[in-house]
């Protein structure tokens, strides 16, 4: 029987991935290259925020904290998201490549999580996977347009890829807690997803004339609360209203 604390922490990690990434996507609102794309990014952002709410509500129901407390009243070291989602949004190529790498990972991850022995996590995963399929189709199309578009778009996509590549190792890391929830059939063994992920990403990069970066440097730490300097700045904006007006609702 899995310890409830472990399940809460596991849900919190997944909820933080969705919350932080959703917040970054929403930064594009009114700032995307054209109207349809603006709407698409905001829509995807909404999917992530909805997913974050489900996961934080679940974690909060075990921890005795509300979803708002978890989202708005924790400081950076208490966040458990993967580092890749907290990076500043960069240019459109950076945001697109980031989304693509994440989409391919989430396709594999949520598909596997639908088999979780924890019914709530399995249900959230079943909901998420349908949305991820739409996200991935969009990001693949954009990878094609950027990679095969102009010299400039290819150069920017390659630069983004080179900068983001060091963060992907974190997709497949498991610490002690994760090893425990995997053993209980609650969590997903992410290390088992890496080969397929690398195959799929490698094939697409090949197709769109981008080169696979080397693995010279890798950073991790998000799952244990060691973040980049960017997360605090993002939280400063995201949490401002609740910090300034505690308990605010509308």
């Amino acid at each position: 029987m899995t310890n409830h604390g472990d399940i809460a922490e596991y849900a919190l990690r997944l909820g933080d991935d969705a919350l932080v990434h959703g917040q970054r996507l929403c930064e594009w609102c009114a700032d995307a290259p054209f109207l349809e794309e603006d709407i698409a990014i905001a829509n995807a952002g909404l999917d992530y925020l909805g997913r974050a709410r489900m996961l934080l509500q679940y974690a909060g129901s075990i921890l005795g904290r509300s979803e708002d407390e978890l989202a708005f009243l924790r400081d950076a070291p208490e966040f458990r998201n993967l580092l890749i989602v907290e990076l500043p949004r960069g240019d459109f190529a950076f945001a697109t490549v980031c989304q693509y790498l994440l989409d391919e990972y989430e396709l594999l991850f949520f598909e596997a999580l639908t088999n979780s022995k924890d019914e709530t996590l399995a249900a959230i995963a079943a909901k998420a996977i349908k949305e991820v399929r739409y996200h991935q189709r969009r990001s693949v199309e954009w990878m094609r347009r950027l990679g095969l578009g102009t010299e400039e778009s290819n150069r920017r996509a390659q630069a983004a890829l080179d900068e983001l590549w060091g963060y992907v190792a974190e997709f497949f890391d498991a610490d002690e807690l994760e090893t425990r929830v995997i053993a209980d059939g609650v969590g997903v063994d992410r290390s088992a997803l890496e080969v397929v992920w690398r195959d799929r990403v490698g094939d697409l990069l090949d197709e769109v004339e981008l080169s696979l970066p080397g693995d010279e440097w890798q950073v991790s730490g998000g799952r244990s609360g060691v973040h980049t300097e960017h997360l605090g700045h993002m939280l400063g904006e995201m949490q401002f209203m609740q910090r300034a007006y505690p308990g605010l609702e509308w």
Binding site: E36, E37, I39, A40, I41, N43, A44, L46, D47, Y134, R137, R138
Partner: peptide, 13 residues
């Protein structure tokens, strides 16, 4: 298809 992400989550344009 113009976009698979339309005016609301459930609609494409």
């Amino acid at each position: 298809v113009i976009s698979e992400f339309g005016s609301t989550s459930c609609k494409a344009l």
